[in-house]
Design a protein around this nucleic acid. Structure first.
Lengths: 346, 346
DNA sequence: GTTCTGGCTGGAAACGCTTGCACATCCTGC
DNA sequence: GCAGGATGTGCAAGCGTTTCCAGCCAGAAC
């Protein structure tokens, strides 16, 4: 059907071994020979069969990337960043990025149980939730290199924002505006105290609240699923409180956007009666005027690929951990607390 | 390093051929044998090397999916839908979804020139722009099955919304509200008259405008890049017109969201002085109150996989083309034109 | 004119799996 | 009892590469 290396060898009048060397740019091939082989390959529209290459050589640069859901903004950014980096490589050919969404399989646990990445990728970028030591071991056993994004693990290279600090700075921003009653919405970890990015953010919120001596009403923390819908539902519960908050930090921008609209629908002015801060700087956040703690997710995707590749080539090099910066983007959903407005007019 | 089929064969006391058959559920394997093999494989944590399987058997179920950019909402939805469908398969094991973003390579042309999918996937889902006959041929030559999403090609199965009709219905909605001066924003095809989804939508807008006898001022069509930023920039140009439009149909929701905010910033009330309709029903659209022509992108991703698989297995079956429905979602960015407000107060 | 390098090249053995084919066995039904 | 299917299993030939190893040939050094 399609040309094989033997066809090329025949046409160029050399052996398959030489074709292999010539085409991959290995040394010890006479320039004239290389040229002849290249021409033959071009004429025949030859490309090496990746399966065969991989079987024979062990080589192959394919990296898997584990995200929660391909449909989420964050995960799309990460993929795009990783892909761009992979394409920019010198040996651009033969790269392969395969996404796994843990949500579609049985969560991260299910994924690591089934390990569909075995014998398939050289490296794995995990951007979903924390990894237990056991899980890291399972990945290592499979012989694949690991890099994490959004959280760190002692034995694997990785990068993340300081999740807790991001949330804390959201609280601090509101406090500086005079808010004393600042709420939180986000996923709550039912399986004990996890170290997911969301849990870290919640910790950061709690720390900021305490540090600033703000209201510590437990009712100010409401669980919410990470979507605009989740934000809308959660904010309604907050606003029904006997004394509603005047400030809100949401675990993600999607949440904040949903909350923002629902609060307005409920008759609360934003930021007049409720100031809202998100985290992430989603694409549309700028355009809905959402104040947020921004991070550059795409750059993190690219950087993760770099770390993975470095780790892969340098072998036992030291484990690199990076904390990437976030920045407060003040837009139009936060403002000074209205004098004496601890209990806003409903 | 990792267990091979021979290890399993040894442990189970059978030949590798039997292991292969037993593990893949082929007939003609005694139940007791199959059980023994399965146990051995489990003990050894054996998984077949996909590269070797592929080389030997030719089989493998990997599908490539070509989108414009992994970071876009639309493309994320499509991927998620396709992945879910692939995972739901009976022979769920061994599937593989590899995304290619044409934006990151040299556009769709560059992608089809390089054809990184050769000898790598059984099928390709193309969701970016139209495909010329020549391009379809190139894909066919490579021996990969093709399915299209968002547009159709005569010789390949595919599905899409009626792009033009979607835009037309946006115009019709505004007309019904009394608008006579309805603008359009979206990408314009510089390479002659393409048949990209965007170009189709523009055609639909023009048709709707004509059909309704609306203002045909050419200045009402402004080019915009498909992002919130693009929408913001484009709407500013529209509002600077001597006679600004009272209605606007945007080629996508991202565009509409950007436009919405920028219009408000410019002092125009939405929908008081400018009514806006988007297309797609982006995740956040509901929460920013955007009126839009909605489509279920995730379902399309899933359906595309079904079509591809059917085509792959039935071989020369007839080419299936499907038009999937859209629906007008009236929210809070459209309203009746204000009496005598063809020229709104700036 | 030898011998010795070193650059090029080809032969052939993997790599780990699938599958066509042949070969035992064990039932059927006569 | 015996031909003739089923049924279950093993052997070995690939699949298209890469890579080890050996061999060839030119030119350099003696």
């Amino acid at each position: 059907m399609s040309a094989t290396i033997e066809d090329v060898a025949g046409r160029a009048g050399v052996s398959v071994a030489t074709v292999s060397r010539a085409l991959r740019g290995l040394p010890n091939v006479a320039p004239s020979t290389r040229e002849r082989v290249t021409a033959a390959a071009r004429d025949l529209h030859y490309v090496a069969d990746p399966a065969a290459s991989r079987l024979a050589g062990g080589r192959g640069l394919s990296v898997g990337i584990v995200v929660a859901s391909l449909a989420r903004w964050y995960d799309g950014q990460l993929l795009a960043g990783a892909e761009a980096e992979l394409l920019g490589l010198d040996s651009a050919a033969g790269y392969e990025l395969l996404p796994f969404s843990s949500g579609a399989i049985g969560g991260l646990d299910g994924f690591l149980e089934a390990r569909p990445f075995r014998k398939r990728v050289e490296g794995l970028i995990v951007a979903d939730g924390p990894l237990s030591d056991g899980q890291v071991d399972r990945i290592a056993e499979a012989g694949v290199a690991l890099t994490t994004v959004g959280f760190l693990h002692e034995v694997a290279p990785g990068l993340t924002i300081d999740q807790a600090a991001a949330a804390t700075s959201g609280v601090a921003h509101l406090r500086a505006l005079g808010h004393r009653r600042v709420a939180w919405m986000g996923p709550v970890d039912h399986h004990g105290l996890g170290f997911t990015p969301s849990a870290e953010r919640l910790r950061g919120y709690l720390a900021g609240r305490e540090e600033g001596g703000l209201d510590a009403d437990p009712g100010l923390v409401v669980p919410a699923e990470l979507s605009p819908r989740g934000g809308a539902e959660a904010v309604r519960r907050l606003l029904e409180l006997p004394t509603p908050p005047t400030g809100l930090v949401a675990c993600s921008d999607e949440l904040a956007i949903g909350a923002m609209q629902a609060a307005r629908d409920a008759g609360f002015r934003v930021p007049g009666e409720l100031s809202i801060v998100g985290i992430d700087d989603h694409d549309v956040s700028e355009y809905v005027g959402l104040t947020t703690i921004g991070q550059d997710v795409r750059a993190q995707g690219a950087r993760a690929v770099q770390l993975l590749l470095a780790y892969l080539s340098e072998g036992t090099a030291e484990v690199v951990h990076e904390i990437v910066p976030t920045r407060l983007l003040v837009r139009r959903t936060t403002g000074p607390v209205r004098p004496g407005a601890t209990s806003p007019t409903p």
